[in-house]
């Protein structure tokens, strides 16, 4: 079976969060991830999609294969054109939330993956990129 090189899911409502994490899980399985890693990837994508729904209303998730030398893995990009994060360092603190949630979304997601990167500009939107390498 040929592996799709990229999967895109547009995120507009809470049901899209479920679709995004299911897509991420099956894409990761095609890339050769297994067991615990599949759950971890699906959970990370769930949090990323949730951030889009909560803070921006809509956006998109792109899932693709990642490679760095001999390392192979998965890369997930969550993009929105929402209000942006004014203080990224603060948003990465456990328990910090502007909407009364648990505040575990971003810092929690970071703990689940190997690479984590946030680019955000107030008034323009936020892009969160994660990578997880196959062991």
């Amino acid at each position: 079976m040929k592996t799709a090189t990229e999967v895109q899911v547009s995120i507009r409502s809470d049901t899209d969060i479920v679709i995004a994490r299911q897509q991420a899980r099956s894409f990761a399985a095609q890339l050769g991830f297994s067991g615990t890693d599949l759950t971890i990837i699906a959970t990370a994508v769930s949090e990323m999609a949730r951030n889009i729904v909560i803070y921006a209303g809509n956006g998109e998730i792109t899932i693709e294969a990642a490679q760095d030398g001999a390392q192979k893995g998965i890369c997930v990009i969550a993009r929105d054109r929402g209000p942006g994060i004014s203080d990224v360092a603060r948003a990465m603190e456990d328990g910090y939330s502007t909407v009364g949630s648990l505040g575990l979304g971003l810092p929690g997601t970071k703990r689940l993956v190997d690479e984590f990167h946030v680019v955000s500009k107030v008034g323009e939107g936020t892009t969160v990129t994660i990578k997880k390498w196959r062991r």
């Binding site: 759950t39 971890i40 949090e47 575990l104 929690g108």
Partner: peptide, 14 residues
């Protein structure tokens, strides 16, 4: 709660 779900929950701080 499945073992891998439990693992992911702990990592997330849940």
């Amino acid at each position: 709660i499945q073992p891998e779900v439990a693992f992911a929950m702990v990592q997330l701080g849940l």
